[in-house]
Design a protein around this nucleic acid. Sequence first.
DNA 1: AAACTGACTAATA
DNA 2: CTATTAGCCAGTT
Length: 110
Amino acid sequence: MNATPPDAAEGFFAAVYAAVRRVPAGRVVTYGSVARLLGVPRGARAVGWALRALPRRLERDVPWHRVVGAGGRIAARPGPGPGLQARRLRAEGVRLRAGRVDMRAHELRP
DNA sequence: AAACTGACTAATA
DNA sequence: CTATTAGCCAGTT
């Protein structure tokens, strides 16, 4: 039998994917808040690490583009990522201000 | 087991 | 506003 809890058994990554999967269109969360939800208050970087490793298989179910940095900043990284993310957010009606998400209007708060 | 890496963050200058 | 610094986390070497 597995004595480890589901999340732990699946690993930190799966826990991140499960959390992000619950973010509805038109709303966003931050790396830090996701980490906090997972019980790792300072695991923001680890969350980013998990999204970076997001398998293509899950790309359809996990709205990675709804995860932004503190203050609504879109995390810079090599590749088309940032541009695509901004484009998708805009397509969902998310208001972008100088490249930053208007958190007051779109941040998902529990 | 130590060192390195990076889709982070908050604090300083 | 931008640039730098230090702390933190999980996975990889």
